[in-house]
Computed example of a mutant assay.
Amino acid sequence: MPEIDPPESGNRVPSSVEEALEIASTNFKPLCHDGTPASVHVEEFDIGYLVYATFPPTEPRSFGGSHLIISKVDGALTFVPNFPRSRRFPFTASVTIPTLSVGAARPMAHAV
């Protein structure tokens, strides 16, 4: 059976933090309040790269905006909200989100 190539996403797939920063430079351009470009940093994690802005200490603190995640699999770009550290989950493929359990567990119905 012939090997089938995966569909092309049209995005470049980074293989290093430097390449992720280069890709981000055309897609993620955060600005300080005075209009100057903010510093952009990249952190590698298991399935991609997290790209985020840092601002000078004199910059007023505000929450909002977004971070950019670049997939190591297909180069897909995903913007995620910027939450304070106390409200963030770690960026990893093995994240388990806690759930609240009310009453007995019931199987979910599947649509046909």
Rank of each mutant, 00 (worst) to 15 (best):
residue 35 G to C: 03
residue 43 E to L: 08
residue 1 M to V: 04
residue 81 P to C: 09
residue 111 A to R: 10
residue 21 L to R: 05
residue 98 P to W: 13
residue 31 L to K: 12
residue 14 P to S: 04
residue 103 G to M: 05
residue 111 A to F: 05
residue 102 V to P: 01
residue 59 E to H: 08
residue 34 D to V: 02
residue 34 D to A: 07
residue 44 E to H: 02
residue 98 P to I: 05
residue 54 T to W: 12
residue 5 D to H: 13
residue 86 S to N: 14
residue 51 V to H: 00
residue 36 T to Y: 02
residue 108 M to R: 13
residue 15 S to K: 10
residue 57 P to K: 07
residue 54 T to I: 10
residue 33 H to G: 03
residue 80 V to Q: 04
residue 11 N to I: 02
residue 50 L to Y: 03
residue 88 R to A: 03
residue 43 E to C: 06
residue 76 A to L: 11
residue 95 V to R: 12
residue 58 T to S: 14
residue 79 F to E: 10
residue 97 I to K: 13
residue 111 A to Q: 07
residue 29 K to Q: 12
residue 15 S to I: 10
residue 7 P to A: 07
residue 92 T to C: 11
residue 44 E to I: 00
residue 37 P to I: 04
residue 17 V to C: 09
residue 41 H to A: 03
residue 47 I to G: 01
residue 49 Y to K: 00
residue 105 A to P: 00
residue 23 I to N: 02
residue 110 H to S: 15
residue 101 S to V: 12
residue 66 S to N: 14
residue 93 A to V: 01
residue 25 S to C: 07
residue 37 P to Q: 14
residue 8 E to C: 05
residue 48 G to R: 00
residue 58 T to E: 10
residue 7 P to E: 11
residue 32 C to S: 07
residue 104 A to P: 00
residue 16 S to K: 03
residue 38 A to F: 00
residue 12 R to V: 04
residue 86 S to M: 08
residue 58 T to K: 15
residue 54 T to K: 08
residue 36 T to Q: 10
residue 85 R to H: 11
residue 82 N to A: 12
residue 81 P to S: 09
residue 5 D to V: 05
residue 81 P to T: 03
residue 107 P to L: 08
residue 26 T to C: 06
residue 27 N to E: 13
residue 73 V to E: 15
residue 9 S to W: 10
residue 101 S to E: 11
residue 55 F to A: 04
residue 17 V to S: 01
residue 83 F to K: 15
residue 76 A to H: 06
residue 66 S to F: 06
residue 22 E to A: 09
residue 102 V to T: 15
residue 107 P to T: 12
residue 13 V to F: 02
residue 79 F to Q: 11
residue 52 Y to D: 00
residue 71 S to C: 14
residue 76 A to C: 10
residue 97 I to Q: 04
residue 97 I to L: 12
residue 24 A to I: 02
residue 89 F to Q: 11
residue 56 P to Y: 09
residue 88 R to Y: 09
residue 64 G to K: 10
residue 61 R to I: 15
